[in-house]
Amino acid sequence: MHKIADVEVQHDIMVANRKLARKNQKILDKDQVFSVDVVGAIGSGKTSLIEALIDAMNYKIGVIAGDVISKYDAGRFEKHNVPVVGLNTGKECHLDAHLVEHALHDMPLEEIDILFIENVGNLICPVDFDLGSHMRMAVISVTEGDDTVEKHPLIFQDSDLVVINKVDLASAVGVDSDKMVNDVKHINPEIQVIKTSLKTGLGFDEVIKAIDLYISGH
């Protein structure tokens, strides 16, 4: 004899990730590490910005570098003599809390003050996955075109600071960087948006100030 049964499951995969993210934050808080999830488009300057911050900030910094296939970015960070854990995400388009938890085990948390997590270059997928960081910084650049923000609103709704990089190239690529700023403000009125050029140094000090402010308010 067979019978048919209805089984309530009510298991949300997103909630499972968020739970892991909260656990990550507890691990970070235990060692008083402030963590920044750096998201953004491919090639927008995430690695370059983190490298510059490592050299300029008066904090001990560690980096988790998420890379789709290579450990190329991890190698760049290592040259700055900071602890680096490379995460190969394989085919994945984003980091998730579980991957970060593994990386945290390999990171000497007691030796650092700030942990930057470079997410996979992608404006869509990381939105769904909290990592447990205290702050999310989105880095885009003018070379993606000035409709990038409109096309990917959610990532800007979920971020705490937006950097619009490579403004030195704006006129060369015919892009109105102010439109990008306004588009972000339209989606997220409270958020701070900073135009930068890592080539000329424009706006870089403001980014440091914004992160410092966030840390002290934290």
Binding site: H2, K3, H11, M14
Partner: peptide
Amino acid sequence: CSVKNIKIEKS
């Protein structure tokens, strides 16, 4: 992104 319920057959 949630599995709400399943209907199964069992002995």
